[in-house]
């Protein structure tokens, strides 16, 4: 029946098996679709469940003004006060200093890896930077505790080396990898024709980079920085272990502070479920969620802008 002249239709499954085959595919494809939207469900889930634990306090007597402006954080006292300003200041100061270190290093490394390196060197550098990203945050915290701490005490002649500077150095090293990889993507997205045209006119590699590539990749680099900020704001274990754990609005980079994330990690275990102290930690969690949501949203919009162009 399959001789060369045969032109009858290929007969495979019987009608019954065909129906079974179809039903199976339908089930599989439905599962795939559900998994496809799972990320959305999870993000809503995170918001819902964190907010759910925070809501009774948030709508039941929490003084939001006090939360955001007072530095009186006495959640355990008989007259509890929830002023998180010092925690917010702690988060901001560590993040800011971390970015001052990380942005030049991260973008510089991105430019170096993308424009000045080729072949083996490039591969090895990328692997090292990937390793940087792989080191767990608790190990970074440990490094801050046992390695950076004495170094800072010696260098700056301070009594404690667990402070903003310590945390910021760790955060900088932790947020650099994402900046390098997103920044490198942004530079790669600039068409080679730009480079060739500029080099044909006699420009050096550096002139091409400075005058042509950086302006062209501006948005992508901005997104890289934003994602680095998002990572730094949300980092928990390293800052918990390395910034000195004192509720304090800092004056100098050598002051000890405590961040929002560190506070939640340190105190949640000691609160009674359902207590106000417990709930205020979820309020702080909601705040963090909102901040990082906005930062990531902005970064994403910026990246999309790049892709559309």
């Amino acid at each position: 029946m399959d001789d060369p002249g045969d032109n009858t239709r290929l007969v495979g499954r019987s009608p019954a098996r065909e129906r079974l085959h179809r039903a199976t595919e339908l089930v599989i494809e439905t599962v795939i679709r559900v998994c496809g939207v799972s990320a959305v469900i999870f993000v809503f889930g995170i918001f819902y469940f964190v907010f759910r634990e925070a809501a009774p306090l948030l709508f039941g007597g929490l003084d939001l003004g006090q939360l955001l402006t007072s530095s009186a954080w006495y959640p355990d006292s008989s007259n509890p006060r929830y002023g998180a300003f010092a925690l917010i200041a702690g988060t901001l100061s560590v993040t800011l200093l971390a970015m001052l270190i990380a942005v030049p290093l991260g973008l510089g490394a991105a430019v170096f890896v993308s424009e000045f390196c080729t072949g083996r060197t490039k591969e090895i550098l990328k692997i090292v930077i990937e390793l940087l990203a792989a080191i767990p945050s608790v190990v970074w915290g440990f490094i801050g505790l046992v390695i950076l701490n004495p170094v800072i005490i010696d260098l700056f002649d301070t009594p404690v080396g667990l402070n903003i500077l310590n945390g910021a150095i760790l955060l900088a090293l932790m947020s650099v990898p994402i900046m390098v990889s997103i920044g490198e993507d942004a530079l790669k997205a600039v068409p080679d024709a730009y480079r060739e045209a500029a080099e044909a006119m006699g420009a050096t590699r550096w002139q091409v980079t400075w005058r042509v590539l950086l302006p062209a990749a501006r948005n992508g680099l901005l997104a890289a920085v934003l994602l680095g900020v998002g990572r730094a704001v949300g980092e928990t274990m390293a800052v918990l272990m390395a910034t000195g754990h004192s509720v304090n609005v800092p004056d100098s980079p050598l002051d000890s502070v405590r961040t929002i994330t560190a506070t939640i990690a340190a105190e949640l275990g000691e609160t009674a479920q359902g207590s106000n102290h417990y709930r205020v930690l979820f309020v702080l969690g909601s705040l963090l969620f909102l901040i990082t949501f906005l930062v990531n949203l902005t970064a994403d919009l910026v990246i999309r802008g790049v892709k559309k162009r």
């Binding site: 399959d2 001789d3 060369p4 045969d6 495979g12 499954r13």
Partner: peptide
């Protein structure tokens, strides 16, 4: 293509491939 259409018989597949 024959396999995706549900042909599993080895002999038949060999004939189709050769043809």
């Amino acid at each position: 293509a024959p396999r995706m259409a549900g042909v599993t018989d080895r002999k038949r597949l060999e004939v189709i491939v050769e043809r």
